[in-house]
Computed example of a mutant assay.
Amino acid sequence: MNTKGGRNRNPYYQGPVSDHFDGTHFFNPEGEAPLGFRELMRWQFGGGRSAWPKQAPSPFPPAKPADRIGGQDLRVTMIGHATLLIQVAGLNILTDPVWSNRTSPFSFAGPKRVVEPGIRFDDLPPIDIVLVTHNHYDHLDLATLKRLHKADGPHIVTPLGNDTIIRRAIPVCKISAVDWGDQLSFRDGVTIDSEPCHHWSARGTRDRRMALWAAFVISTPAGKIYHIGDTGFHGGINYRAACEKHGLFRLANLPIGAYEPRWFMKAQHQNPAEAVKGMQLCNATYVAGHHFATIQLTNEGIKEPVAALEKALREQGVAPERFRALRAGEVFDVPAI
């Protein structure tokens, strides 16, 4: 246990030192730490921020998903930002669920969604598993997790330390805290592995990198799914490692937004061209692009990620039907391989 003045220095997690935990803070091995307050102010007051519309309705109506999808079928429905409904092997899995209007510690201020969720909360099927990749407010929304717990009591899977944050709000929830390299087993041969990604964490100004961040690999009888909530490209290191460990992916869910300005965002958010490279490095047959056109976090315009993705697919020789940037309410029935 790490102490300073009789108090634990990490409010979320106490555990042994590892190749990505120094006893107080988590870090990206051979990677980059997030930039500090001075650089944040330089970005915030440096101009160049594109204007987003206050509302940007999706071309797709809210989806009404089936209760279950079985056999060799795999269906992904975009809800918004990094929130996806994955239906496979009779399981309903939600990633980083956010139904709140703002991704902020405050209900009256902070980034606000410009499009309604692609599935109305009351139209959700029974949720079995919730994956929370890290604790930034656009990924860990306690208000939504409380609603899901009340409705279905799903099994929450999240990296080390985030379980403490969630349990403070939902003391009796079913939750598993996982380190990189851990694996959980579920019914019918489904497993979930926690894998590295290049990111960071914070809920406030004094808890930077005190909870872990992760990607997940969902292995099912219908194929493998690689889900990343947020990541910097990091020279493709984590993509190559995922391919070496897990082999072929039927689907990868990859972020393509919140990447400008590059000097500030490069270490934490890949851009669309890097996402296409990542797709190829991890050996993903299909990709669902997410983390765009829902809330404005960074400088690029609302339409820029899709335009940049289309350009990158052309330049890298990838068929556009293999990498789909999903809009709220859009349903992707992933072809078999």
Rank of each mutant, 00 (worst) to 15 (best):
K4V: 08
G5C: 02
P11M: 05
Q14I: 07
G15C: 11
L40C: 02
M41Q: 12
F45M: 14
A51I: 11
Q55N: 07
S58E: 04
P65W: 04
R75L: 07
R75P: 00
M78D: 08
T83D: 06
L84C: 12
L85T: 11
V88Y: 02
G90N: 10
S100F: 00
T103F: 00
P111N: 06
P111R: 02
P111G: 03
P117F: 08
D123F: 03
L131V: 12
T133S: 15
H134Q: 13
N135L: 05
H139Y: 01
I156F: 15
I165D: 01
I166Q: 04
R168P: 00
K174A: 12
S176E: 14
Q183E: 14
D193F: 03
S201M: 08
R206N: 09
R208K: 11
A211F: 00
A214P: 02
Y226A: 14
T231R: 09
E244Y: 01
L248V: 13
F249Y: 14
L254K: 05
L254F: 11
K266V: 10
A267G: 15
A267M: 09
A267Q: 14
E274P: 02
G278E: 13
G278N: 12
Q280P: 01
L281R: 15
N299Q: 11
A308M: 09
R324E: 01
E330G: 02
V331H: 01
A336R: 13
